[in-house]
């Protein structure tokens, strides 16, 4: 700063006078002009770009302001056929191995006299061993045990009202849409995996091929076209329910009206929008 102050006079207009300090002045003038034009671009830019003629976002026939999605899971009905898990992988191009899932199913088994359940899922070696491509299945490994109680619990992203993953994202690559889905912008994701760590439900995974965090989108490309997510579409017993909570007649509104629902890990304060019935206190 000291050095700068040794310039002779300085009466404004940029670059007008070419003294011995002209280099710096010219630079400043240039910079000023560049700034002005950049500012102009940035002011005009957003006005020029985006939004279809109908004004609806994100697509011409789907306005996210009009929807408020919710998801229901009835664990009483789930038969553990894992058709949802395979359908999700087909629909969304998820790696077909036992480490990458947007949705998965856990089996809770209480053996006679046991205080805590045994929990297994698709990642368990025994279950991998009996699975085939597009035919994931649970191994019948408790058939010789005395089982007191057992049930399946489908799991997936809870699309929280206060998502921890969104809070920790350093680049704004993950966000909550106006209609309630938590999505990942694959161009802005730098693959740091803070979100994978932050999710209390373990719902995110790292996509090694695209080098980014990945997760359930509620099949956003389907719901924005008026379809159900693939897992809901494929479930043969109606254990999965999806719909618009703004619409009183939608399956999810009925589900919420007819049942007393729970959410997973309420103590985390994430306020999930996936609602469960038929789960046990040990399920989290």
């Amino acid at each position: 700063m000291n050095k700068m102050s040794d310039t002779p006079d300085n009466t404004l207009p940029e670059g007008q006078d070419a003294g011995d300090t002209s280099g710096r002045r010219r630079f400043l003038a240039g910079a000023g002009a560049a700034c002005a034009s950049a500012a102009l671009i940035s002011v005009l830019g957003p006005a020029v770009a985006k939004d279809g003629p109908s004004g609806s976002f994100p697509t011409a026939d789907f306005d996210w302001e009009k929807h408020n999605w919710g998801y229901g899971i009835d664990a009483n009905k789930c038969i553990g056929c894992l058709r949802c898990v395979d359908a999700c992988k087909n629909e969304n191009g998820v790696a077909k191995d036992a480490n990458h899932f947007r949705t998965w199913v856990e089996r809770y088994v209480y053996l006679e006299g046991a205080k805590r359940p045994l929990i297994d899922s698709q990642s368990h070696p025994d279950n991998i061993a009996v699975s085939a491509p597009n035919a994931s299945r649970f191994d019948d490994r408790y058939k010789n045990e005395k089982v007191e109680k057992a049930f399946f619990v489908p799991k997936m992203c809870n699309h929280c009202e206060n998502p921890s993953c969104v809070q920790v994202c350093p680049t704004g690559a993950t966000f909550k849409t106006k209609d309630g889905a938590v999505l990942v912008d694959k161009e802005y994701c730098i693959g740091c995996q803070y979100c994978v760590q932050a999710c209390p439900y373990g719902a995110r995974y790292f996509n090694e091929i695209e080098r980014r965090a990945d997760k359930c989108t509620w099949c956003y490309h389907r719901i924005s076209k008026g379809m159900n997510p693939a897992c809901v579409e494929i479930c043969p017993v109606g254990a999965r329910v999806f719909g618009d909570m703004n619409d009183k007649n939608s399956p999810i509104s009925q589900f919420l009206k007819d049942n007393r629902v729970l959410s997973l890990k309420p103590e985390m304060g994430n306020r999930p929008t996936c609602y469960y019935i038929g789960i046990d206190k040990e399920v989290s």
Partner: peptide
Amino acid sequence: YGHYRANSVPDIAAPDPAY
């Protein structure tokens, strides 16, 4: 719309459903 790139949403909504 918030601290994210709004244009990523149409991209995510674009793919053709498989089922």
